[in-house]
Design a protein around this nucleic acid. Structure first.
Lengths: 343, 343
DNA sequence: CATCAAAATACAATCGATTGTATTTTAATA
DNA sequence: TATTAAAATACAATCGATTGTATTTTGATG
């Protein structure tokens, strides 16, 4: 019936004691006698008391909450990263607020404002495709809110990040195509403001170079890497006066688009075109032919990034230590690149 | 350098005015002169002021935050529901805290406690597979926190929910298999404490009945509906002395497992066994053969559920109005049930 | 029984913003 | 210029929990 919230003051008044004692009892402070604690706990349960974290956090200026910003949670890589983040955070008593930038810089900025306004203790970020200016991160820094990039990071100095070696992974992927006898290899790349796509591009180029395959600018197409882009990009590639027989995609989604389109027009994969993707989405093992791809454990990256963030949070020193942690990846060979070697 | 937070009091002191005026100015109250507002806003920007929502929310006892609890965000249905929820909530100035129960009742309860402690204005819930007792929802009720179930709901009276007609959808799916000449139809069902799986089961049974197909208890297998369950269940079904030629699965994931296993042992889909799933996951259109399934728009369900919740929140009346909204579904016919009609 | 340290509890300020009421300032009118 | 209503601003309590300090209670000891 009564709409009012039960507070420690109500409990205190009913029991004829002071609210500070109630507070200490509920926090199991050694300064309260066991008998009193029992009495208070009993009454608190009876009244259905539930601490108001707003008040508590305000007073303590500590929320035990981490903000997480990802482009979209529906990506397998990100949802498994979130799983790793949550697991690690919960173990240490932290809650997690998950936010999606939906690849929009504006939303990313607004999310950061909200997280700051809610005084999260730290932030984990994988930046959006639109993100080119880094002022909003500077704001976090000024406010002394530690943050860690994972996967999609920024190239600002003095930040912590948990990433993979995109260059090496892309090199491996491209090398794999070359070993599978591809000689005219295209590359579907993503927005070049993102380090990861820049580095994957560099890795692709380096592999070509190593094997003395001439690099052709027209064979590299930059897009948002959605499925529809995969279809469009493939059309473009096929219209060129080259016989493309290999394709390295900067993510799996765009590769799926390519596969679907190539199947539709009757091109044989991998015989005519061998394909390698990046990320190992769930769908990639299911599509036919199954997609060879770079496997990066989102779960592990999430765990490591969270541990790093929590370390930064508990480090009272004013001067933040910045680290870059590189997580191993591996190539999963599947049918989209499985050419039967003739030798 | 200075570690301290900038507050309205700092701004007030610097400008030699009262903090209440600063507060009103920042909230664009008509009670403050434009000239003063300008002065305050300028100084606030200069100092990098960012309101402390903890304090603000505490004072206003209103957080403009909704809690969302889903079993797991990696499911396509749920991530698209979340997209719909966020879109609708943001439009009306609400933030969203996304939480995963990971199908665990314990986590679900703990999440609700956290949401209550953080004084969210309302909660959207799709319950876990383990959820059988509903006390934690009663707690929300007592605290006058409105909540709306979506998809996986509870059968407690006097609650609001946005659901689909599981019975009808399952009936349609099963009828479809029958029309495709299946005569021995198995059903992979989920935990029977969940209304949705109970109703899907009922729909399956009702369709059999309508067409005078005898119901066989052994052809119904209840599991957690994971991919591994699909494999196990299929093995069981095939070991029975029936020639199963149709399979209706209570979700797509378990159907994918079944398809993978059947392909592996060389059973032909749909010729030997026709399959229908439920939910229309991304993967379902990609697997071969593509999976016939019930399409339910997570996005739309999320939108509708959020609108209903916001309506409840803004409804000051003590007595909550409870509604059940049913969202349309449709059958998407794909290859897993595409038997060429001989007639 | 007096003494006193330790244990238990009470007091009161505080976190930062909001908001009803009181006061001061402004400017329009007689 | 005095008057006064309206506009602008100041004051002070409040939201609910925390926490350093002060006070009281307990019980052990001589």
């Amino acid at each position: 019936m009564d709409n009012k919230e039960v507070t420690i003051h109500d409990i205190a008044e009913i029991l004829g004691i002071n609210s500070s004692t109630v507070s200490r009892a509920l926090n199991n402070s050694p300064r309260v006698a066991q008998k009193t604690k029992d009495k208070i706990l009993k009454k608190a349960n009876e009244l259905g008391y539930q601490r108001n974290d707003l008040a508590s956090n305000l007073r303590k200026s500590k929320t035990f909450t981490l903000g997480v910003i990802v482009p979209r949670i529906s990506r397998h890589f990100f949802s498994s990263a979130i799983a790793g983040i949550e697991e690690t955070a919960f173990k240490q008593g932290y809650n997690v607020i998950i936010c999606q930038s939906l690849e929009s810089l504006e939303r990313e900025q607004s999310i950061i404002n909200t997280l700051v306004a809610n005084r999260v203790d730290g932030v984990l970020i994988s930046i959006s495709m639109e993100t080119e200016n880094y002022n909003h991160f500077k704001g976090l820094e000024q406010r002394n809110i530690p943050f860690v990039f994972f996967d999609r990071h920024c190239n600002i100095s003095n930040t912590s990040r948990v990433v993979i070696d995109d260059f090496a992974a892309a090199f491996t992927a491209t090398e794999h195509l070359i070993q599978k006898k591809s000689t005219e290899i295209a590359h579907f790349s993503g927005p070049q403001n993102l380090e990861i796509y820049k580095n994957r591009f560099k890795g692709y180029k380096a592999a070509l170079e190593k094997y003395n395959i001439p690099f052709k600018e027209e064979l590299v197409i930059t897009s948002s890497l959605m499925e529809a882009d995969g279809i469009e990009n493939t059309k473009k590639i096929l219209s060129l006066p080259y016989k493309v027989d290999g394709l390295f995609c900067a993510n799996d989604v765009v590769a799926i688009g390519a596969i679907k389109y190539l199947k539709k027009i009757g091109k044989k994969i991998p015989e005519e075109i061998a394909i390698v993707g990046f990320s190992n989405e769930t769908i990639s093992s299911v599509i036919e032919p199954s997609l060879t791809t770079i496997n990066q454990s989102g779960f592990k990256i999430g765990q490591i990034a969270t541990n790093l963030l929590l370390k930064k949070i508990s480090n009272d020193d004013k001067k933040q230590i910045h680290e870059t942690i590189i997580v191993k990846t591996n190539l999963i060979e599947r049918k989209s690149s499985l050419r039967i070697d003739k030798d």
